[in-house]
Amino acid sequence: MMDAADLAAIRLTLELAAVTTAILLVIGTPVAWWLARTRSVLKGAVGAVVALPLVLPPTVIGFYLLLLMGPHGPVGQLTQALGLGLLPFSFAGLVVGSVFYSLPFVVQPLQQAFEAIGERPLEVAATLRAGALDTFFSVVLPLARPGFVTAAVLGFAHTVGEFGVVLMIGGNIPEKTRVVSVQIYDHVEALEYAQAHWLSAGMVAFSFLVLFLLYSRKRGGMR
């Protein structure tokens, strides 16, 4: 059965995924909007940076985050100067890592949703003298709602499934940085296979359910 440490890991994982998803929706929306609308020469470069976590091994991301956020890194010096201390081995550090790691899973569905809206609704809104913000909230957001749902679900699920980055910058601290994936790894290494099974099977069930709901919704055309 699961013990208190397992439950703490589950709670921490859900917290991390929720905070990360919320931040990603706030940051990702303007980025995706810009990527969907821009004709700038920078579009390719920004799009590539957003997609980097898809192809980089988590070890690369974790290694550079550890150096960047460490006492000698630029981010670490900034956080220290601001009196925030250092980010590695903290929940905030995991959030920063997860935001970067799950970025494409939120930005790309949003970008596709924005692109699918096309010019027409925006032109109509403009002829009705709607301002930019008004257009965004009254026209774009409702039309892009399925994209927001997809982005939130994928961002959340992908953060739950994170392992390599957390292992490298987390330091495996109970109730602060020991998420479910790390807890499973610990159980397996310590030959506690029964506990590893409980958590692992839970992850499989959770992931399947999330993806099943997501893809059923798309097929069924429910909005």
Binding site: L66, L67, M69, G70, P71, H72, L86, P88, F89, L167, M168, G171, N172, I173, Y185
Partner: peptide, 17 residues
């Protein structure tokens, strides 16, 4: 803070984190 093995532990200290 716990390193997965002694090499990662060394890395935590060597990087100053």
């Amino acid at each position: 803070v716990t390193g997965e093995n002694i090499a990662q532990t060394h890395q935590f200290v060597a990087s100053g984190n």
